[in-house]
Amino acid sequence: MNSTPTDTDPGTGAGLGAETATAALALADDALILSHRLGEWAGHAPELEEDVALANIALDLLGQARILYTLVGDEDELAYLREERAFRNLQLVEQPNGDFAHTIARQLYFSTYQRLLYGRLATGDGPFAALAAKAVKEVDYHQDHAEQWTLRLGDGTAESHERMERACTALWRFTGEMFQPVGDGDGLDGVDRQELAESWLSSVTAVLRRATLTVPEGPRSGAWTAGAGRQGLHTESFGRMLAEMQHLHRSHPGASW
């Protein structure tokens, strides 16, 4: 493929400005893709109670994604008919589940970010305020779930400690992206990214320390200057994930379900 599929003109949906639409799409993609990954756990969780908990989080995220997509256009068109390069989600959320420690580390990093971001959006009067006010309650719980498990895995057995260290370190390099601009402009109601990044780091650091885990060192984003998920550049497993997610919908063009 030598041409780069561009956005499916996300600015037309509900009269949002192009920057806001791009931001809505990015947040929606984050929520959908993470929800999809969590959905892969169904029937595989370490304990039945945890199957129920992960599904709850996945359902919250899917609900958020659907509201956000609707701000921009048709939810199913956006989810099922865009190419990989048009997805704006963070690379963090598309990372394969790995073991339970990887899933929890991903949850900790992402839900802390989402809680801080939505908390700020909820107090503004921008297009995301209403959605964020509802979502922040859900996300609070997701963050709590991740924190509880981080403590138990970090401060549990030698094996769990080691697995959790490994997971936190492995995903560390995807965490810088959360604080970079979404698209060209900044459709996120002028949330102060620098301040968001600092709050995130101090919150995550506090949890990791309590969990007796070391705060990873090293770069928090890749060296590729072309960018990452927000620029539609993803990791290799993402294409396969999308192929699975989209194939049925795409096999029956125009069908309703």
Binding site: A42, D51, A55, L59, Y80, L248, H249, A255
Partner: peptide, 20 residues
């Protein structure tokens, strides 16, 4: 992971969760 619409995906996830 292959549900053909987001609505069906949500319903199916909720259903499988109920079974747990």
């Amino acid at each position: 992971t292959r549900a053909p619409s987001l609505r069906r995906k949500a319903i199916l996830m909720a259903k499988v969760q109920d079974e747990a």
